[in-house]
Amino acid sequence: MNTKTKSFLSSLPKPSVKDGDGIKAEYSVTILKDASFIYSVWRNFENLPRFMKHLDEVQVLNDTRTLWRAKPFENLETEWETEMIAETPDEFISWRSIEGSEISIAGSVHFSPAPRGQGTQVTVRMMYGPPLGKITHVITKLTKADPHSLLREDMKRFKSYIETGDILSTEGQPRGQGIEYKKTA
């Protein structure tokens, strides 16, 4: 991190998720594209719902602030305002929810070159302070919507979106409903 981002960071209030609190999730994918391209897709935050399955909308409020709306699992709709803490073009972005948000989230994404022309490693680290504390984590884990699985799924989708311009789906394909085929005369 350069001096400029450091001073920017130190000018901000304390993180919304305290060290040691909340749930940590991290995941990394390697994407066969240049860092600058991948970075630009991510940095345009309004793109994020295209691959973050449980994110409904991201609204850019100003240079550093965005409003996120999500439905992390059934019967839980939430929104929170996020501020960017640090940014190094083509390399790094970090953000966190502002104090007093419905849920507390802090996150970062690193973009670094992968060896042997394999593209760019994209590593996301998230800290969640869920709205109801650790009990929510247990519930979400049981319903398989735990932060790690969600992040994994979203990162896979992001990679597909960047590499192929689309995210492969099987929704809407035919399947048997138990209706026996009868030869028509």
Binding site: L168, E171, G176, Q177, E180
Partner: peptide, 27 residues
């Protein structure tokens, strides 16, 4: 259309199902 469907162990049946449609852009 007709399609061969899996319906459990040692049970494949020829069923009437919907015809497939394009889902992704490169389909």
């Amino acid at each position: 259309m007709k399609a061969v469907c899996w319906n459990g162990k040692k049970k494949v049946t020829v069923e009437s199902v919907d015809e497939p449609r394009l889902i992704n852009k490169e389909d």
